[in-house]
Structure formats: C-alpha cells, structure tokens
C-alpha cells in the first residue's frame, strides 16, 4: 500500500507540472491588462511602467520559471518560517506570489479567506452527507413508498433548482418576510459568548442549508442507487437465510457494500469544499474562497487566479488518490501492489 501511494504521488508530479503550465499559458493568452481597471487619466507611459514593475516585460518562459520558483520554493519556505518561527536564509528579499490588485501575498489572502469557506461550505457538505445517507438507505429499503417518493421529489428539487434561486428564496422568506435570519454573512463577527454564538449560527443557517440541500440531493440519490443495487444481490438472500435480523442484513451486509461507491464520491467532492461555492458565497456575502476567486477574475488579478486554480488542481489530484486508497480499504477485493 505504501509503495502504491508513493508511486501515485510521484506520478502526480508531472501531472501537476503540466497543469501549472497549461494554467499559466491559458491565463497569459487571455486578453487582459492589469491596468485596465485604473482611471483613464493615467498616461500610457505610466501604465507601461506599472506593467514593467509587475514583471510583465519579461518573456513568457522567464515569467513561468519565476512563478514556479515563487510557488514551489519561496511560498513553502515562508509557510515553514511562519509555522515554526524560524528564519531560513534571506527571507526579506525572497519574492512571493503577490496579487496585482492588492499587492499583498496571494497565500496570505487565501489563508485569510479559507476559514469562512471551510465553515460554511464544509459544514454544508457534512450536513448534506448526514442527511443524505439515511435518506438514501430508507428510500432504497422502502422503494416506492411515500417516503421514497417524497425523497425523490425533494432530491429532484435540490438537484435541479440552482442555488441562486433557493438562496434568494430563503432570503425572501427568512430575512425579508419572517425577519428571522440576517441576509448578510458578517465575516468580522467573533464568537465570544452564547449570544454571539447564536448569531453566528443564525447567519450561517441559510448559506449552509441552501448548499446542504444541493449536496444532499446528489449524495442521497447515489446512496439510494447503491443500496438498491445491493439489496437484490444473492448474498442478501444468504444473510436472510441464515436467520439474521433485517437490521443486521441492512446495516452490516448491505450497507458495507453500498458505502464503497458513496465514500469514493464523497472523497472526490471534498476539493469543491475548498474551492468554495461562488454563487452561494456571493448571494450571502460570505467572504470566502469562491468570492476571492470571482473578484480576482473580474479584476484580471492573474497571480491570484493562477494560484487558486492550481491549488484546486493539487487538491483534486490529492483527493483522487485518497478516494482510490479508500476504495482499497473498503473493498477487500481490491489490492494495490
């Protein structure tokens, strides 16, 4: 197993280098100008100087190499320094990947935004799973019952109605009409006592539930299909023929088999949690990663877009590996050598 993981990680290196190159090249080819958002009164020579100062005067391959150095060497070194409070070499003059728009290091921006995204999107993913798995099991076990019909109906809604609709609907109902929940997520809010904790829950409720509905819809369908698939297998009949309780048949025999594809699906979905939920974050004004990315794209903040996209790529490659390893752990028929 260790051998397999190491090999997969080594294979990931060329993949990621290729991805970084494609990302860099695509963004470079895209027609954009970092000075485009600046006032029109700024003369052309000044704009040219700004571009020079951002390093845009150099040829493509030099810029790509510089970015590689900054991202793979300088930023990790910086993170290590921060984590352990030590100094490695000349950290003052070490170049970091900086946002064109704010001139602050991209990694700092991401670290600043990550907690909001993880709390809101991560929690919604977790709640989605916790809702979806039992619903999927019961729906499959009682196929075509009213519970299953209702579950199917709600899943279809969660699946097909976009979050910008359910989000706005939730705001109209809970913020405008009932005035129960705040419609704007206050990132600066600090939990210090019970009252502020309650406010935190209230401001998280809508974005989390809107996203949870969407996630639960997908996972519950998948769970239902997996359980249905296994319920008709011969080994279920064997388990019943042994005189086991229905509970044991369902939760030990059927569930163990049904969870294999679902766990894989869940693992593959985790990178999207880090990626944030652009639309939902935008609607509820959650200052998360998705918000950061969309603002960066609008402002042609290439280093930020580049770094964020590449980090998503790293996460996707990583969780693909994790999903494969989990598959091998859950299914004894699969052995990695």
């Amino acid at each position: 197993m260790t051998h397999y993981i190491v090999r997969r990680l080594l294979f990931a290196v060329p993949t990621l280098i290729a991805i970084s190159f494609i990302l860099f090249a695509l963004l470079d080819l895209a027609p954009n100008d970092p000075t485009g958002q600046l006032p029109l009164t700024i003369p052309a020579e000044a704009r040219e100087q700004i571009r020079e100062s951002l390093g845009l005067g150099q040829p493509f391959h030099i810029r790509y190499a510089r970015w590689m150095e900054q991202f793979f060497v300088n930023e990790p070194l910086n993170l290590i320094e921060q984590a352990f409070g030590i100094e490695i070499g000349d950290s003052e003059s070490r170049l970091r990947v900086r946002s064109w728009a704010t001139r602050s290091p991209v990694v700092d921006l991401i670290i600043e935004r990550l907690p909001q995204t993880l709390w809101v999107v991560g929690l919604s993913y977790l709640i989605g799973i916790l809702i979806a798995v039992p619903i999927g099991i019961v729906s499959a076990y009682r196929q075509y019952s009213w519970f299953d019909q209702l579950g199917t109906f709600v899943s279809m809604i969660g699946f097909s109605v976009p979050t910008f609709f359910t989000g706005l609907l939730a705001i109209i109902v809970f913020s405008v009409a009932l005035q129960w929940l705040p419609s704007i997520y206050d990132t600066t809010h600090r939990v210090t006592d019970l009252a502020s904790f309650w406010l935190q829950i209230k401001q998280m409720a809508m974005p989390v539930m809107v996203l949870a509905l969407f996630n639960a819809a997908q996972i519950s369908r998948f769970m239902r299909a997996a359980v249905l698939d296994n319920l008709t297998q011969d080994y279920v009949r064997t388990a019943r023929a042994k005189g086991l309780r229905e509970r044991v048949v369902l939760f030990i025999h059927v569930l163990r088999n049904s969870l294999i594809p679902v766990v894989t699906l869940i693992a593959l979905g985790i990178p999207t949690v880090f990626g944030g939920a652009i639309i939902t974050e935008k609607i509820f004004r959650v200052n998360g990663i998705g918000e950061l990315l969309i603002t960066a794209i609008q402002g042609a903040d290439i280093p930020l877009v580049q770094t964020l996209s590449f980090l998503f790529a790293v996460l996707i490659v990583l969780f693909n590996l994790i999903a494969d390893v989990l598959y091998g752990v859950l299914d004894p028929r699969i052995r990695y050598g």
């Binding site: 297998q233 011969d234 080994y235 009949r237 005189g243 163990r256 088999n257």
Partner: peptide, 22 residues
C-alpha cells in the same frame, strides 16, 4: 428467523454471489 439457518439450512447455486464480498 429462528427457523432460518437454525432448523433449515440453505445452500445456493452461485457461491461467489451468495457470499458477501466485503
């Protein structure tokens, strides 16, 4: 349930499909 497996045993045709793989 107390009869199944205790007083009456069952052997099925396909031993691969009839055993739980995991």
């Amino acid at each position: 349930r107390h009869v199944r497996g205790a007083k009456v045993g069952f052997i099925f045709q396909d031993p691969m499909a009839s055993l739980n793989p995991v």
